[in-house]
């Protein structure tokens, strides 16, 4: 619509949105520099005390480690399973294909909040409460259907001719997949991977239910647990919140182009 030229008010509108997007975080940053515990003070004194206390005097480092491990394994599991499944659904014709794909999609529409108690019971029965494994399994289950559908439509947009040529040349199916399809799939994988990573990084409800034990907490759970018995420690929460945004922000900066590209190649065809 505005492909050739941007009207002047486009800048205004985007500028306003940018301010709306960033200003709350800027205020949060100011709050995090206030050494007095409480939003009461507004003393005009700034220090990095809260950051020091978040980084050195709390379990935040452990929470970061936990979240990173869980997020990476979830991304790995999700992408592996989704790629295999997407390849099947894209390159093979077989009875029940659409039924299976739709069944998987339906299962993913289970509202997390409604199955927390049974999920907890299941995890307890399997003795997997407070482990990385249960978080990876549950997050993977939740993210798989979407990723599967995304990668499938992405794969549909990759012309099969090259692959067929490779097969004729005596390449195995797996060989053709690895050499021909996988390289072209990279933008889609990066986009899906980023989405899954951000999801895990920010998830709270499942994480707090299945891994509330202190040394197993994820970042967002750790942040919530800052609400103490003796008033909210705003400065520390703010510092923790700012720190918690950094890892996904770095990933996002690197992968932002791939994100839109990866999604658009897989979008409506």
């Amino acid at each position: 619509m505005f492909r050739d030229k941007a009207p002047w008010w486009a800048y205004v509108a985007i500028l306003l949105t940018s301010i709306g997007a960033v200003l709350p975080l800027a205020w949060l940053f100011l709050l995090s520099l206030d050494p007095n515990q409480g939003i009461a003070s507004g003393s005009g004194v700034y220090s990095l005390k809260n950051y020091a206390s978040v980084i050195f005097q709390s379990m935040m480092a452990q929470y970061f480690l936990n979240t990173t491990i869980v997020a990476l394994f979830t991304v790995l599991c999700t992408l592996t399973c989704a790629t295999l499944g997407a390849y099947a659904a894209s390159r093979y014709r077989f009875p029940g294909r659409e039924t299976i794909m739709i069944g998987l999609l339906l299962a993913s529409m289970t509202p997390v909040i409604a199955v927390l108690v049974p999920l907890y019971a299941l995890a307890a029965k399997l003795q997997l409460l407070n482990t990385y494994s249960i978080l990876v399994i549950v997050f993977t289950a939740w993210q798989l259907p979407g990723t599967l559908w995304l990668l499938r439509s992405f794969m549909n947009s990759i012309p099969p001719e090259l692959e067929e040529a490779a097969l004729v040349d005596g390449c195995s199916r797996a060989g053709a997949f690895v050499r021909i399809v996988l390289p072209q799939l990279v933008p889609g994988l990066l986009a899906a991977g980023l989405i899954v990573f951000v999801y895990v990084w920010n998830e709270f409800i499942i994480a707090v239910s299945l891994a509330a034990k202190q040394d197993m907490r994820l970042v967002s759970v750790g942040l919530y647990f800052y609400l103490s018995d003796f008033g909210v420690e705003w400065g520390k929460i703010a510092a923790g919140a700012i720190v918690s945004i950094i890892p996904p922000a770095i990933l996002f900066l690197f992968l932002q182009r791939q994100l839109i590209h990866g999604l658009s190649a897989g979008a409506v065809k």
Partner: peptide, 21 residues
């Protein structure tokens, strides 16, 4: 093979969602 390729995804998704539902 297409079924085999879809198995890991299906197992994880159904194992986690069906029982709780």
């Amino acid at each position: 093979s297409p079924y085999l390729l879809l198995t890991p995804a299906a197992v994880i998704i159904f194992a986690i969602t069906l029982y709780p539902i």
